[in-house]
Nucleic acid binder design. Structure first.
Length: 273
DNA sequence: CTTCGTTCCTGGAAGC
DNA sequence: TGCTTCCAGGAACGAA
């Protein structure tokens, strides 16, 4: 489940293999993954272009293919971008093939096929979700002063609040649970009940958890792999996610599970207030 | 306006 | 053992 640290790791591992290479051919095996423009326009718009740079915004990867053109990719749950030598056979669940120069091929693979790709030229389309992203953890704009007034207006569980990409870009279910565990805040508490001190702690925890995720090259739970097909190691350092029923690493209490906003959530009812 | 529930999809695990 | 059912979850969408 790629969240910000996983997408960042994909960006890093992909860059040396695809940057500066020319797109010689594009084959789309599942049309509905291409959200803009048409599949034909997507293919013809990319062939002949060079991948100048690969960036990231929240959980979106942004491949700059010309001064006025970007290929925007969201991996959703099980999407992956894998760069490998062209002579190697297609990886499992291959959905789009980008044949690059210098004998390299970039594959978009996806088991559950929720991934989305947009080819944007001169900002000719408004991508809801991409344009409305809030600040990222570890950025200058992401501060308690930014978060506090928004939290005070939000009458919903704090977990749902921090998962909102318009509020914070990049958190997903795993890191949201981890951030709340580290800041010792119960996930079901409504955001507008948090004190200023708690918001400061939450901000700190979000930065720490995301920085640790990046340092550990992402969390591989089921399907996540980076641009070279390797797994991350952050799953070895999780406080609560997927540990429901097991002892809290801090106090030994059995960790609780609960559905919050339709998401499986794990927390320590003793440590978190 | 905000908030909540449903939907998309497949594979793996759990249940009978 | 083998079938069926449930669950995983990012974010758009419609309903309340």
């Amino acid at each position: 489940m790629p969240e910000m640290p996983e997408v960042e790791q994909v960006r890093k591992t992909l860059a040396p293999h695809i940057q500066g290479k020319k797109i010689e051919n594009v084959e789309v095996y599942l049309d509905r993954l291409v959200k803009h423009p048409t599949v034909e326009g997507f293919i013809s718009g990319l062939i002949g272009k060079t991948i100048e740079k690969i960036g990231r915004k929240g959980k979106y990867l942004v491949l700059h293919t010309a001064a006025n053109q970007k290929l925007i990719v969201h991996l959703r749950m099980t999407g992956a971008l894998i760069a490998q030598k062209s002579e190697l056979e297609a990886p499992p669940y291959a959905k789009i093939k980008f044949t690059l120069s210098e004998g390299m091929t970039l594959w978009f693979t996806d088991i559950r096929t929720f991934g989305t790709l947009y080819l944007v030229t001169d900002n000719d389309v408004f991508i809801d979700g991409y344009e409305t992203l809030g600040p990222e953890p570890l950025s200058e704009e992401f501060t308690a002063e930014y978060l506090a007034p928004l939290a005070k207006k939000a009458k919903k569980p704090v977990k749902t609040f921090i998962l909102d990409q318009k509020i914070i870009a990049g958190l997903g279910n795993i890191y949201a649970d981890e951030c709340l565990a580290l800041s010792k805040i119960l996930p079901y508490r409504h955001a507008n009940t948090l004190t200023d001190e708690e918001i400061v702690e939450l901000c700190k925890a979000i930065n720490i958890v995301i920085a640790q995720g990046i340092k550990n090259k992402g969390t591989t739970f089921r399907d996540y792999k980076d641009g070279e097909g390797n797994k991350g190691s952050n799953q070895e350092h999780l406080l609560v996610y997927s540990r429901g029923g097991k002892p809290c690493k801090t106090c030994g209490e059995t960790l609780s599970t609960m559905k919050i906003g339709g998401r499986g959530s794990v927390f320590c009812a003793k440590c978190q207030k």
